[in-house]
Structures are given as C-alpha cells and as structure tokens.
Design a binder for these strands. Structure first.
Lengths: 196, 196
DNA sequence: GTTTTACTGTACCAAACAGTACAAATCAAC
DNA sequence: GTTGATTTGTACTGTTTGGTACAGTAAAAC
C-alpha cells in the first residue's frame, strides 16, 4: 500500500477543501497538516513552501475538472448540456449550503502580485474553460443552429462571467436567486440567437 | 483642524485601499496603522477589533457608492447610462492595471461563517444595488420601452452577476477581454428586448 | 548486505499576529 | 484653571504564522 506518495495526496486534498472553504490566506499550513494527518516533515519534503502547496492544489483541481471527475464539468455538446452546465453549479451551491464560491475564483482572488506562477495556473485554466465553451458555440454555429451574427467567444465569456459572478453572489447572499436569474437570462439570450 | 476624528477616517480609508488590493485576510492591522500613520492606541479606541474596522470600512464604502462619490455609480436612467454602467467598471480596471476586483466582492469573499454582521453589510449593499438596477428596468418597461416578457429583476441580476464575474476574471487574467465580451453580450440581449 | 535515496516525526525558530494595559496628552465644560 | 472625558503613544502579551534542523525510518540500488 501507500502508493508513491499517499501523504502528499492527502495534504493536497485537505488543502483544496480548506482553500475552497476559507480561501488560501485564511488557511494555515498547520490546519492542512491537522486535517490530513501529516506533519511538518512531509510538508517540507513535498512542497518547499505554502505557495508550492497552492500550486499543487491548483494542478490537482484543474486536472480533476479537465478529466471530468469533478461535480462540475465542461463536456458541453448539446443545448441541454449548456443548460445543465449552469444547473450543475447551482446544484453544487445548494449541496454546500451556499457557503462557497468557485474554487478557482476563490483561490485566484487570493493570489497577489508576487505569485506570478500561481496566477499563471489560474489563467491557463480560465483559457482552457473558455476554449471549451467557445468550441461548443462554434460547432453549433457551423451546424447552422446559431445565427451568423453570433460570436462564439463572446458567448463563452458571457457564460463564464455569469458563473463566476453568480457563484460569488450566492456565497455572499446565501441564496441562489440572483445566480439563477442571471443564468436563465443568459440561456434566453442564447435561445434568441438560435435558428428555428 | 483635525475634526472630530481625523485618525479614525485615515484608518478606514487606508484599510479600504489595502483590503481592496490584497483582501481582508492578507492585510494586518499593523499594515493599516503604518499606512494611515496611526498607532495601536487609536485603533483600539475607535474599533474594538479587526472585524470592527472591517465593518466601518464596509459602511464607508457603501456610503460613498450610494452617495455617488465613487468612480462607479448606480445612477442609471437611460439606455446610455446602462452601457456606461458597464464601461465605468471596465475603465476602473484599466486605471488600476487589472490588479483588483470589485471591493465589495473582494471583502465579501473573505467573510467567514463567524462574521454574520459583516455578511449582512455586504448582503444589504447587494440588495440595494439590485434594487437600483431593477428600478431602472421597471421604469423602462412601464414606459413601454421593453417587451412585456422582460423581467426587470432578472435583468438586474444578469448585469450584477456579469459585473462581479467580469471584475474577478479581469483581476485573474490581467486583461478585460472576457469582461468586455460579456458586457457587450448583455447589452445586446437587453437591446433585443427593447421595443422599436 | 551495505549504501544511497526517499520519506517521516519531533522539536524548534524568529517574525508577525490580534489584542491589551496604561500612562500621557489633549480637549471640553464649568 | 480645575475637573472629567476623549484621544493618543508606547510597551507588552500570549498565540499563531511559515519555515528550518535534523535525527530516525523505510525502501530501493547495487
């Protein structure tokens, strides 16, 4: 047992949960160690600093999402999938009692100037997710299901902005009403751009 | 000179700037004191704790916005005003080199469970801003400039979600492209709901 | 089987943290 | 101008912070 590094993975997963809950700056390394049942020794061995741990957390988190093993995925192929893309975030918020925001947004918001490496991690994921949604709209447009004036990139940016803002508003208000309204308006807009 | 409490106000304004820049959790009380040129004595006298200071910051910040003395205002009366409402946020981001997000969102995101009072401050402001935009759309609808199916509250929520998400994405990506796209799509949607 | 290498546990450090104690100064009222 | 409240400066406290030192253990390499 104890694959290549059991302790390392436990630390990453504990940190992810705590970072998502309270943010990076409000989470101490000792909290992560206590939660994962590890010690300072392992921590220094696997990550040279807290930034190193945060980097590992971002790598793990984006990997999980890209592989489709997260509660919220980016495998959008149909119009129904797009609706579900919003719904899965709203459902997630309900499952965590509206106490969190998007993990990428939460961690990304805590990144400061002297952490360029971490900001790149976040930026790369944002570009990946943008490409994912852009591809969907591009395909639909190529299939003649969207009017010629529709801009795939802009539609993708609309969805992601609403998701980020909606997740944050939900956490701050402890209810999904604004998020749900914004999502349904976005879907109505997309519907208005569809050919019939 | 030195009105009723010069030091108190200096602390609040210094804290607002630091909180907006780095977040509440990444800002120490000592940093605020150094920046405002005050001491621990004043701090304990005017605010009994860091939470007390944060509360005062939120009160000041929301007051400034409500009074229209902030770079971003909510005095929306015409369709052009709505476009400017988005533009002023984008302009603000450019003026701070894309290094910040919405101050309310930044502070609100740092609030944890045991800070109900602070969360109420944030929540009340969100409801105020939502009402402001809702009133605009309601008036336009009453004036017959919006189709009957248009939902004022939902349109307001759409705008605020995009603003919050767009501000956050701008900070994380260090560019306004996604925010600008999302805002222009929202404006296009609103335009499609207008009677001609 | 010995010698590297990888991993883990415990103790420790200096700095930073939020908050307190309390005397000194400033101001207002009378 | 003496009294009493408000305001300010400095020193301090106990705790938590991120990070290090280093010895011990397990595992792999030869």
């Amino acid at each position: 047992m104890a694959l290549k590094s059991d302790a390392r993975q436990r630390m990453v997963e504990a940190a992810l949960d705590l970072f998502h809950r309270q943010g990076v700056n409000a989470t101490s390394v000792d909290q992560v160690l206590a939660k994962s049942g590890t010690g300072k020794g392992q921590f220094s061995h696997y990550f040279k600093s807290k930034d190193g741990l945060t980097h590992a957390v971002l790598q793990f988190l984006t990997g999980v999402i890209k592989d489709g093993h997260a509660p919220t995925g980016y495998d959008v192929k149909t119009w129904k999938d797009l609706e579900n893309w919003f719904l899965q975030y709203i459902e997630f918020q309900k499952s965590v009692k509206f106490e969190r925001s998007c993990p990428i947004g939460t961690i990304g918001n805590d990144v400061t100037d002297d952490q360029e490496l971490l900001r790149q991690d976040v930026k790369l994921f944002l570009e990946w997710s943008r490409n994912r949604l852009t591809r969907f709209f591009t395909e639909k447009k190529a299939a003649g299901e969207l009017v010629a004036s529709a801009k795939p990139e802009a539609l993708a940016d609309l969805c992601i902005s609403i998701m980020q803002g909606g997740m944050l508003l939900t956490k701050m208000k402890r209810e999904t009403d604004m998020f749900e309204n914004a999502a349904s308006q976005a879907l109505a807009y997309v519907r208005s751009l569809r050919t019939r």
